[in-house]
């Protein structure tokens, strides 16, 4: 209850500051529209925004699911095999050295203007945090457990599956929490580079037509969706750990 009140208080304060800035500096609506105008547009354009939001949500969820699965599998392969580790690790670092932003036009060229170039962007942007968080956790299994397993006569593959993977799941979960915040960035960049649907596309379109209130409305929806995604993943990870 107090937490809800605190959040409400923060939101209210932000809205007040926003309105104060608009009023004090007498900003025109095509530079910074006030909150009442933005929320008015959010309500009147709700069908339009919902339609585009749905597209972005689909891209984000697909990218998140595929990226998490790929990151999970890569980290396990790297943890299991020193050869795979020496081959994949430099590639993983290199994939971070290339800015994902720079890849967006190429991905659009290869995968088209539709859904999959954005899914690929979201996937690429979360692959590294998920893989490295899970891999690091897999390599940090408490020594006592590994020694116990050795004395017990365990097979390495079974040690990996029955001890190292479950022990590393909190690391995987922290990777996923980061991914929940990063994945929408990937999808939006993809939409900016080339799309005909999605919240990123809608924002560009509104900006081009000086409909700054619509742009802000889309931005607010995007932020709220990202927060919800993060909260959902956080709750899911907690439940997974407790059960």
């Amino acid at each position: 209850m107090t937490r809800t009140l605190r959040i409400l208080g923060t939101v209210l304060l932000a809205l007040l500051v926003w309105q104060a800035v608009v009023t004090v500096f007498a900003l025109p609506r095509f530079i910074l529209p006030g909150p009442h105008l933005v929320f008015g547009t959010l309500w009147t354009s709700r069908a339009l925004i919902a339609e585009h939001a749905w597209v972005t949500v689909t891209e984000v969820l697909l990218g998140l699911g595929l990226g998490a699965a790929l990151g999970f599998a890569s980290a396990i392969v790297m943890a299991a095999s020193p050869v795979a580790r020496s081959l994949l690790r430099p590639m993983l670092v290199f994939s971070q050295a290339v800015p994902v932003f720079a890849l967006a036009p190429i991905l659009t060229l290869w995968l088209g203007y539709g859904l999959w170039s954005k899914v690929a962007m979201a996937l690429l942007i979360i692959y590294f945090p998920v893989t490295s968080a899970f891999f690091d956790a897999l390599m940090r299994t408490p020594t006592g457990w590994l020694e116990l397993a050795r004395v017990i006569g365990a097979r390495p593959a079974r040690i990996l599956w029955h001890i190292r993977v479950p022990a590393a799941l909190p690391g995987f979960a922290s990777g996923l929490r980061l991914a929940a915040v990063y994945a929408p960035i990937g999808a939006i960049i993809g939409e900016w580079v080339g799309a005909s649907r999605g919240l990123g596309y809608l924002m560009l379109l509104a900006n081009g037509r000086a409909k700054i209130d619509l742009m802000f409305a889309a931005l607010i929806v995007l932020a709220v969706l990202t927060l919800l995604l993060h909260a959902a993943i956080d709750a899911a990870c907690r439940r997974m750990w407790e059960s």
Binding site: L148, I152, G153, R155, R158, I163
Partner: peptide
């Protein structure tokens, strides 16, 4: 050295699981 994600019975049978 108990596994926190396993209940007491599963911790006791850990050896069998690790050996398949």
């Amino acid at each position: 050295l108990l596994m926190p994600w396993l209940d007491a019975v599963a911790n006791v049978t850990l050896g069998a699981r690790l050996r398949g």
